[in-house]
Computed example of a mutant assay.
Amino acid sequence: MSGHSKWHNIQRRKGKQDAVRGQLFTKLSRDIYHAAKEAGGNPDTNFRLKVALENAKQNNLPADSIARTIAKATGSMPGVTYEELLYEGYGPGGVAVMLEIVTDNRNRTAADVRHIFSKRSGNLGETGCVSWMFNRVGRIEIEKDSCPMSMDDLMMLVLEAGADDLKEDHDSYVVTTAVESFARVRDALEAEKIALADAELSYEPTTTVELTEEQADPILDLVEALENNDDVQNVYANFLIAEE
C-alpha cells in the first residue's frame, strides 16, 4: 500500500473506521472545500459541491462548519484572507512528506506543524527539500462494487477521455491523469453515471521507501496528527507498507 494514498486508505489498512466523528468531519469539510475552490460556492451550478453538501448533511456536519468551509474556499469570509501553501519535510525513517495548507495565519500554522513534526521524530524542511520526489497528477477513485462497467470497459472509457492509467487498489479502481486532463476524465465518468469515491489533484511520489508494519507505525502517527490539524488540507508521503 502506498503512503501517498489519502488517509482513508491508511485507516483501512490500520483497521480504523471512517465513521470516527472527527476524522469523518475533516474529510467531509475537505470535500466541500475542494469543490467550492474549483467551481465556486453555488451548489446549483457546481455539481461536485452539491454532492459534497448532501454527504455532509447526511452525516450531520454542522451548518456553521459548512458555511465557514465554503467561505474559506471562495475567499468570501469578511476580514479574513486565506493563503494556500505547500509545506515539505521528513518523517521518521526518512519518509518524504508534503502538505497542502490553507491558513489565515501562516506563522501560527508553521509553528503548529513544526511542533507536530518534531514531537514525532520528524523535521519540517525548506521549500524544495522533497517536492522534487513528487509529481502533480489527477487521481480518481472508483469503488469496484459501485462501478457498472467491467475493468476493460472502464479502461477504454478513461483512456479515450485522456487518462494516463487505471489500476486496481484493493476494492477500488484508481485512475491517474495529467493535471490538464483531470476535469475531462472526471466529466466523462460522471456522464456515464459512475459514482466517484474520490476525485482530486494529488501529489504522487516518484520514489518510495518500503517499511514493515512496525516501522510504519511512527509515520502513520505523524500523518494522522497532521491530518487532524485544521489548516492541513492534504498529506502526501512516499512510503510503502510491505505486504506480509
Rank of each mutant, 00 (worst) to 15 (best):
R13N: 08
E224M: 09
N105R: 04
N234G: 01
N228T: 01
V209I: 14
Y33Q: 03
A197F: 06
F25L: 13
V174A: 03
R68Q: 15
E83F: 08
D18E: 10
T45D: 04
V137L: 12
R68E: 14
E224D: 07
G89K: 02
R108S: 15
G93I: 09
S150C: 07
V185E: 01
D112I: 05
N228P: 10
A225W: 08
D198M: 13
Y82I: 01
R108D: 14
S146E: 08
E143T: 11
K144H: 05
A216S: 15
L157D: 05
R186D: 01
S118E: 14
G94C: 09
C129Y: 00
A242P: 06
F25I: 06
E168M: 09
D198C: 06
L211I: 07
L196M: 09
L24H: 07
A163T: 06
P62M: 10
L85H: 10
M77F: 02
E210F: 04
D112W: 01
H115C: 00
T74E: 08
S5F: 07
D221C: 08
P205D: 00
T103N: 11
V51I: 15
D198H: 07
P78C: 04
S121N: 13
E143D: 12
L157S: 08
Y87D: 01
S121M: 07
N9S: 09
E100G: 09
L157F: 02
Q215G: 05
D217P: 00
E224A: 12
G3M: 02
K57P: 00
L154A: 12
E227F: 10
